[in-house]
Design a protein around this nucleic acid. Structure first.
Length: 874
RNA sequence: GCGAGAGUGGCGGAAUUGGCAGACGCACUGGAUUUAGGAUCCAGCGGGCAACCGUGGGGGUUCGAAUCCCCCCUUUCGCACCA
């Protein structure tokens, strides 16, 4: 049993084993001190400082999603920030003015929970965590411009958010309403729609309750159209993220049609995406929350039955998150009049009609909508077919709804029109009559941002008995969140802290009460990347010139879990800031990379999870060490505490060094794919670093003294390989193919090992190859490469050197290999001059006897792909 | 159900304007060195004795397909009564 998982090791073990590693593999490679040394130098020389808009270099804004300061670094962080760092360092070395900032998404629930547990103040807890995490980030050697660090929980940050809120309020972009909301009992607060996944809280997995609460809303729906259409221009975003946003926004185009209520001067309006089915309407369905409900109850004969049904549906909506419940309804007692044929259409309450989508009333066409079909069957309502397939008749009676497009029939003047034409014709017809119009509906809802919590940005509003709801005056901002508190209760202390909520009205000066809800933390993360561009302005949110210069973010890296929530909010907020006149761009992120999760298999026994150290492998079986029972090896899943399959990066860094950790997470998988953790793989990465170290140390004299020969006559292959590698690595980093960039450098180093220089020129070629290898791998493993450069007595710091450029001439070959295929199968190869012509190749082909491979015994045709391949057909 | 990805050696993964399948790494095997090896260096490593066969399965286009087209299977993710 040789397997030694990192996570198996306690601290003691890990120290032991690094001693072991230093003593044996890495006698000369003392990563602990080397990494500390260079981190200190980078810090002191401030070499990763962004130069601002005055710089004449092209700007490059490299951003990784900022972390929540939990205090603990996890493997996902290592991956996320290592990816960003390679690009940032590469761009710096290719002559860019790189903005690569970091900060803390510092408001949020965990701080409150910790505070309740430990009876401390959330602020103190948060700042201590930030300290701890900053140390870890520095330990990873990420090239941040630390002077731009921000924490969203400081008034210096959130005051501007309060200012934006007030300006949005003044422009009618924020409003307050009482509505059914998603309530998480673990969060003890409301969640936005985006934060509910399949009926459960995105963070806790607890079932979300429905509650009716007064909340503040951002009118994100005003931007629905732009948020949707602009996706087409985001060519640097992965398609699946754009698709998820499209689905979330959920635009549907259709028609509004008025249906008068029989025997009343009232009417209801329906929204339909299938106006071509309008003549098939046999009833209509109403949401129980509809405004017409009171009117119906007033005059209904079966009032009790209706009330019972309404209660039942409300109960259902509040407590069921399974969408598969039976379609039920009750007759309202009202009839609508069909606007085109005058027929009486019974109006039903139905449990599946959503109050907040469309108009809350649906025209029911049972023949062409499955839900309506089910409903009609249950309540014996007529089913009238009006659309048939283009090429055949419908089989009647229908066994299920025919929902495809087709041709209209049974529809009077519209008969014979296709679905596409019929939609237009019906819409035209109702708008002519003034009883309908074309319209659009979105699935996207307004962003409910109130949180009934303490640790967040106070919403800067005041309630005055005389003047109503009044925004805080801008000159009175910030509304400071009192930090020096500790609490044990569940409710927000703001609600009981008189010194906070008691205030005077900004308008009349009389007694008034502050809003005690705070903002959703997604508000902070919607504009932090903008604040980074000018983090220290105190008289305004930021200098727009700096922001307009640095933005948009050229490359944004983070988890795909934010594809809808954060990335939609931040796009929205950017548009708002543009409309408030703060910035001159409307999309915040040019290129987006969503990185995969870090996964590891888990071990399960008797329904519980086991830590890897509790498991051993014998004869291909996994056994519980203590009991000897067989263990179930789980699927490779995202590392999580609950599955006990977490590897602690700090242990990893202490055992192998930051360079190894970085190299491994970049090498083991392409960034967008899930990464499978492998202790053996880590060792492999560590081995490469040692190999690089050893060969450079061995040849350090040559590297110091021998300048590269531009066009060597000896050692040409290694020279060519060197320049091919520069090209490959440069192109791969640009394409975010970090794993193949690393493998290219590994190849070069392998070639160096195999190369024994026999002349001065060959020595110079080897020296060049090694210098280049150091330079190319530096963005991945910056500490060891900075050390190696110094060790070779070369001037300057490797991390600051211009990235190598390849020499096109060095890539040319004296001889090329042309592959010979016969009927598509590889049979031979020719070594020929690169200038070889088709005629020359054909004559070489005819010099050979390939008859045994030829089906017909003779060459019928020769296909030549210049410089690559010749295929003989015959 | 709808939508978007993915499927390649024992494993992670290369190769995508169609042109040498399996780069690089892990594991494994052999050799060198060593008191020793869980270190290091060198070499081998898809299957098959071979002809040949091989990129989830089946068809197709093509001189040529992992790559393009059609059907199917498996799998991951997102959405899911949105009228």
């Amino acid at each position: 049993m040789k397997r030694r998982d990192l996570c198996v090791l306690s601290n003691d073990h890990s120290k032991q084993s690094s001693r072991h590693l230093q003593g044996v593999i890495t006698m000369q490679y003392d990563f602990i001190n080397i990494e500390k040394k260079w981190q200190k130098i980078w810090d002191e020389k401030d070499i990763f400082a962004y130069e601002g808009r005055e710089s004449n270099k092209p700007k490059y804004y490299m951003l990784e999603m900022f972390p929540y300061p939990s205090g603990k670094l996890h493997m996902g962080h290592v991956r996320n920030y290592s990816i960003g760092d390679v690009v940032a360092r590469y761009k710096k070395r290719t002559g860019h003015n790189v903005l690569h900032p970091i900060g803390w998404d510092a408001f949020g629930l965990p701080a409150e929970n910790a505070a309740i547990e430990n009876k401390t103040a959330p602020a103190a807890w948060t700042y201590a965590n930030i300290e701890a995490m900053r140390k870890r980030f520095k330990q990873l050697g990420i090239s941040y411009d630390w002077k731009r660090e921000i924490a969203t929980c400081t008034p210096e940050y959130y005051q501007w958010e309060q200012q934006f809120f007030i300006e949005m309020y003044d422009k009618g972009m924020v409003y307050r309403k009482k509505a059914e909301v998603n309530w998480c009992n673990d969060c003890n607060t409301v969640l936005a729609n985006e934060q509910v996944e399949n009926g459960v809280c995105w963070r806790h997995g607890t079932v979300v309750e429905k509650r009716k609460i007064v909340q503040w809303y951002f009118k994100i729906t005003d931007y629905a159209e732009e948020l949707l259409s602009e996706l087409d221009n985001l060519t640097g975003w992965p398609d699946h993220v754009k698709e998820m946003q499209r689905n979330w926004i959920g635009k549907s185009t259709g028609t509004y049609i008025d249906f008068p209520i029989d025997g009343s001067d009232k009417k209801v309006t329906v929204f339909t995406t299938r106006p071509d089915t309008v003549m098939g309407v046999t009833f209509a369905s109403l949401a129980v929350e509809h405004e017409l409900t009171d009117f119906i109850l007033e005059q209904a004969e079966n009032r009790e039955e209706i009330q019972e049904f309404i209660d039942e549906v409300k109960e259902l909506h509040a407590n069921t998150h399974d969408d598969d419940y039976e379609k039920k309804g009750v007759f309202t007692g009202l009839y609508l009049l069909h606007p085109l044929n005058g027929e009486k259409v019974p109006l039903y309450f139905a449990n599946f009609v959503l109050a907040d989508y469309g108009t809350g009333v649906v025209m029911a066409v049972p023949a062409h909508d499955q839900r309506d079909f089910d409903f009609a069957q249950k309540y014996n309502l007529p089913i009238k077919a009006v659309i048939k397939p283009a090429d055949k008749e419908l089989e009647l009676p229908l066994k299920e709804a025919f929902t495809d497009a087709g041709v209209m029939f049974n529809s009077g003047e519209f008969d014979g029109l296709t679905t596409a034409k019929g939609k237009k014709a019906v819409t035209y017809s109702v708008s002519e009559k003034g009883i309908g119009k074309k319209g659009v509906n979105f699935r996207l809802r307004d962003w409910g941002l109130s949180r009934q919590r303490y640790w967040g940005t106070p919403i800067p509003m005041v309630y005055c008995e005389k003047c109503g709801i009044v925004p805080v005056k801008k000159e009175d901002l910030p509304v400071v969140l009192p930090e020096d508190i500790s609490f044990s209760g569940v409710t927000s202390p703001l609600k009981t802290l008189e010194s906070f909520y008691k205030t005077t009205c900004p308008t009349c000066g009389g007694e008034a009460k502050r809003e005690t809800d705070t903002m959703d933390t997604f508000v902070e993360s919607s504009w932090y990347h903008i604040k980074y561009c000018d983090p220290h302005s105190t008289d305004r949110p930021f200098n727009p010139d700096e922001v307009n210069h640095a933005m948009p973010v050229d490359n944004y890296i983070g988890g795909v879990e934010h594809a809808v929530m954060h990335l939609l909010y931040t796009r929205y907020f950017t548009k708002v800031l543009a409309d408030l006149g703060y910035v001159n761009f409307r999309e915040p992120v040019k290129n987006l990379l969503t990185q995969g999760m870090v996964c590891l298999e888990s071990y399960k026994m008797d329904g519980g999870y086991l830590y890897p150290e509790e498991v051993e492998q014998k004869e291909g079986k996994f056994l519980h060490k203590e009991s000897g029972k067989e263990v179930i090896v789980g699927r490779k899943e995202k590392m999580s505490k609950s599955k006990k399959n977490v590897v602690d990066p700090v242990t990893l860094i202490e055992k192998y060094g930051a360079d190894t950790a970085r190299l491994f997470v970049l090498f083991a998988a392409p960034p967008e794919r899930d990464l499978e953790w492998s202790e053996k793989g880590v060792e492999g990465s560590n081995r490469f670093i040692s190999r690089l170290w050893n060969i450079v140390v061995k040849n350090s004299e040559l590297i110091t003294t021998l300048a590269a020969v531009a066009e060597p006559t000896e050692g040409k292959e290694l020279h060519r390989k060197t320049h091919e590698t520069i090209k490959k690595v440069s192109e791969d980093i640009e394409k975010a193919h970090f794993n193949t960039a690393i493998s290219a450098v590994m190849e070069l180093v392998n070639d160096c090992y195999r190369f024994t220089p026999k002349s001065d020129q060959e020595k110079a070629v080897l020296a060049e190859a090694l210098r280049i290898a150091i330079a190319l791998i530096n963005p991945f493993v910056p500490h060891i490469t900075d050390e190696l450069r110094t060790l070779c007595n070369l001037d300057g710091i490797e991390s600051m050197q211009p990235f190598p450029l390849w020499n096109e001439k060095a890539l040319t070959r004296d001889e090329i290999t042309v592959v010979v295929q016969i009927n598509g199968k590889l049979r031979d190869r020719y070594q020929v001059a690169p200038t070889v012509t088709r005629e020359e190749i054909e004559s070489i082909v005819r010099e050979h006897d390939y008859t045994k491979y030829l089906k017909s015994g003779e060459i019928k045709k020769v296909i030549y792909v210049p410089g690559k391949l010749v295929n003989i057909v015959g």
